[in-house]
Every structure is written in C-alpha cells, then in structure tokens.
Write a protein that binds this DNA or RNA. Structure first.
Length: 461
RNA sequence: GGCGCGGUAGCCAAGUGGUAAGGCCGAGGUCUGCAAAACCUCUAUGCGCCGGUUCAAUUCCGGCCCGCGCCUCCA
C-alpha cells in the first residue's frame, strides 16, 4: 500500500508521490528555533516527521528521498537571547543547535539530508533576492523605517490553507484584548507581514544588508523557508510539514511569498501534526507543564520510551502526555525486546507477517493502530515471524530496542546493604535477608536476585 | 466571535452500519526461600447526553453539554 497522508490544503487523504521526473520525493519539514532546548512537544513533530521519512525510504528507496529541515538561527527570540546573555548570536545558536541534534539522535531520528540555517550568508542572500523579486513584482513594499512587508491583498488566494478569510472583520473577543504588534503602524494593512525587519538598537550587532531600498536588518521569519526550500529542493516541493500551529500564519505566508515570487505551486502536499498536551493543556512556561528530554532522562526514563510514548497517539490528534504513558511505553518496549529474542535469525521473507503494521502506518500514519497490530502478532507467539521482518517494522517506527533506560548510579550505602543481604541469603539467613530487602525498598531501591548474583534498580520517579 | 479537532474500560488509545484492536495498570494462577522476571487466565451488554434514520448505530443525520487547539512571528 502506498503511503497516503492527510493534505491540509485539500483536506483529503492523498498518496505521496514525486512530481519531478527524477522520481525524488522533495520533503521539507519546518525545523526548530535554536534559542533553548526543544521540549517534548516539539519532538512529537520531529518524531512524526522521522516516521514519514522512514516510510518514504521503505517505499521509494533511500536514494529517492530528499529530506530538508531548517534551523531558525536568526529571529526575535534568538537575538533577544544572545543580547540578554551578552554572547554572540552565532555562539548561542550553535549551542542550542548541537543540543537539538543530540536530542534528535537520542530519539533515534534520522538526520535530514540538509539542515539549512537562516543566518547562513548563502541563504541570507537567497532570502534578500526573493524579497527583491517580490518588491519588483509589487507584492511587497518598503515602510518608512526601511522594513519590507508582504502585501497580502496582492495575493488573491491568500487564506486557502488556513481558511481564514477576511480575518480583520472577524476579530473577536479572543483577540480584542491583545496588544497590537510593535510594527503595526508600519504596515499598510493589519494582515501584511514582515519580509525584512529594519535594524533596531535592541538587535545589537545583528544586522545584514537588506533588499533594494531597505535598511540593514534581518529577514522576517517566514521568508527563510520559502528561500531555502527553493534553493535546495526547487520551486515546487512534494511534501511540506510542520506542527499545526505553523499552519497559520507561517505556512500561509510561505505559500504567498513563494507563489508570488515563482509563479508556481509551492507545495503539492501539506501535512500538519497536532499538539502534544501536558495535563490536558498545551505546554507553556507560564503553566509550568513543559518537559525537555533531559528532564525525563534525569527521572530515569529512556529517550526511546519517550519516542514510543509520542507514537501512542494518532499524529493528527492531540495527545495528552503523562509520566504514566512513559511507564507504559517502557513496559511495551521491554516486551518487544523479549519478543525479538525469541525470533529466528534467518530471513524467511516473512514481511507479510507484519504487513498490517506497515499498512496502518502508510494509511495516514496511524501509529496507534500500527502498534496495536504489532502486539496482536507479538501475542500470537507463532513461529511465522523472523528478525529481519520484525526489524523492518522497528526501522519504520524508529524504535531502537538496544536503547534502555539509563542506569542510576548506586550509592555506596545501598551497595553495602545489598552486599550484606546477599551474604545473608547465601548463608540461608532469610530473616536477615528479608529485613535488608525491606530497608532497600524503603530507600527506593529494588534488589533483583539471580542465581549467580544480583542487580539493583532505582524506583522510577 | 471565526476556524478546526476531540469526548470509547482505572489510565492511554484504535476502530466498524451488524454488535468493541492493542498497550499500561489491576486480579487470579503456575513457577520460585522472599522479591522480581517469565508464562497462563480474567478485566467495557458498553463507546458524552437527547432525539431521528435503519431490520440493525458506538459507527449516519440533527440538537445539546463538556474539553482542547489556532486566530500574525508557538512543533
């Protein structure tokens, strides 16, 4: 079964296919802003996109997939962070880019083939060039302060993706109390958006030569994706993805810029993954319900458990994350590990045994159905499966069964108690052994006996 | 106010016009000095509420209640 995904623009399920004669699937995934550690909600999107990447490779072959994910390393947040910390922008964004890569690796995400940076001189130039074209064509205008804005009413199709039409007339209660953005006065129309932002004192040393007739400054957020996807993948891409919150205005604006500039369809397929919720609400610093991967591993959870937990819900439905779901994921991974050990090494070509798992994934990325189908087979315990076919499914899901929860360091006093108990047990002094076990349990440690020795595990927080 | 999504067992979560996948937890059992692991068995007459269509609805239609997200730079 060919991969089909929901397309946000047509609102239908559509098969993914290459539009160019070379047969390469051009896949662009909106990446992170590198000013802090990405949280697990961000990683839901990146894990989901990683599964898409893997499914594409399985269907079309690794050589026929070109996966691009940008790094936003120049914007309000990155600049503000660098100014606050008195460090260069490059220094700050390098730090968080490397952290992002490390987290992605821990979550077993394949690296995109290219990860263009918005502040890369090569791509800054591409962005400026694109803005120049938009100015020439009359889709953009300069404001008094030397910024450049996109003229939304110059693009009649604006709003097709988000279906937000005549928004200005519909601004209701939810927006009424919000302050106007600082640059509102510079715009001809409230729905216009910045392509180029003129330098301000608070930007510090961060400024670059702008488009014709504009001041020194920096690119607006949306233009980077339009310019970099064009530079690397060409004017028309086959799949463009991101979190739902990017649907408007980010992706709507990308369409407007790219199509006005290039005169061609920007993306043939749009896919958006839903939010991860924590405690029933979207994660936010103000609610204090924001988790990072580091926080979870510090609690003794493995990154793979997080990956599994993120796949437990349908990617196009909000998923409420809880620490309990992490425990469930760990238990499920353990079962899979044990199941794999029972499988014969030889390949019998039994891929069809797991056919339903792949079919579920290919059918709009139904990860929960796929996991359900997987465990139905695991529970059968029949001998029809083999490791090669099982590993193929693990590849598709990106589950690396070799990764286990990090072992907590055992304090010396715990080791001492365990040694005493082991000695008592060997001497068949079970009363003493049981007392010591209770002490260990009270201290939060479980002592697991084997024939020839023991191991210690810390209770999960 | 506009746009969109969702409400299925203790928790998470698929799904179908013909009577509810799967995971976690829990219970019982086998095994075992104890504990753990492993293995076996069990766990929704029910799918937010009220109507309607139908031989038959959790699944289609209408209304209602509740929750969540987006509405100019949040994945």
């Amino acid at each position: 079964m060919a991969i089909q995904l929901f397309d946000s623009l047509s609102r239908t399920l559509k098969p993914l296919k290459a539009s160019q004669p070379d047969g390469v699937i051009r896949f662009y995934n909106c990446g992170p802003t590198v000013y802090a550690a990405a949280h697990i909600g961000n990683f839901r999107t990146f894990v989901v996109n990683d599964v898409i990447r893997r499914l594409l490779e399985l269907e079309f072959g690794a050589a026929k997939v070109k996966h691009v994910r940008n790094l936003t390393d120049v914007d309000d947040k990155t600049i503000r962070r660098s100014q606050e910390e008195g460090r260069s922008l490059a220094d700050v964004t390098k730090q968080w880019t490397e952290k992002f890569w490390a987290d992605c690796k821990a979550l077993n995400c394949l690296s995109p083939h290219e990860e263009p940076r918005a502040a890369d001189p090569k791509y800054l130039k591409a962005q400026v060039n694109m803005i120049d074209v938009l100015l020439e064509k009359g889709n953009a205008y300069r404001s008094a302060d030397g910024s450049v804005y996109f003229k939304v009413n110059s693009f009649p199709e604006y709003g097709a993706l988000s279906r937000v039409k005549e928004r200005d007339l519909q601004l209701g209660s939810a927006l009424a109390g919000k302050p106007q953005t600082a640059d509102a006065d510079e715009k001809e129309d409230g729905s216009d958006f910045a392509l180029w932002k003129a330098w301000k004192a608070e930007d510090g040393p961060n400024k670059w030569p702008g488009p014709h007739g504009a001041s020194e400054g920096r690119p607006g957020w949306h233009i980077e994706c339009s310019a970099m996807s064009k530079a690397i993948l060409g004017e028309t891409i086959d799949l463009h993805t991101g979190g739902v919150d990017l649907l408007f205005p980010h992706h709507e604006n990308e369409i407007a810029q790219s199509q006005c500039c290039n005169g061609t369809t920007f993306a043939n397929h749009w896919y958006h993954s839903e939010h991860l919720l924590v405690d029933g609400k979207k994660m936010s610093k103000s609610l204090g319900n924001l988790y990072t991967l580091d926080q979870l591993t510090a609690m003794g959870h493995s990154p793979m458990a997080l990956r599994y937990a993120l796949l437990m819900g349908h990617p196009r439905k909000q998923l409420n994350f809880t620490l309990d779901s992490l425990h469930a994921a760990e238990s499920a991974l353990k079962t899979l590990r044990e199941y794999r050990a029972t499988l014969p090494e030889t390949t019998t070509g039994a891929h069809e045994v797991f056919g339903h798992v792949l079919t579920s994934l290919n059918d709009d990325l139904n990860t929960p159905a796929a996991l359900g189908a997987l465990f139905t087979i695991v529970n059968r315990k029949g001998g029809e499966a083999d490791r090669a076919s099982f590993d193929r499914v693990m590849f598709a899901l990106g589950l690396d069964l070799k990764v286990e929860a990090p072992k907590a360091a055992v304090p010396a006093e715990i080791t001492a108690l365990a040694e005493k108990r082991w000695a008592a047990k060997q001497a068949k002094d079970f009363a003493t052994a049981d007392t010591l076990r209770k002490e260990l349990t009270a201290a939060g440690w479980a002592m697991l006996d084997r024939k020839d020795g023991y191991s210690l595990e810390k209770a999960k927080s």
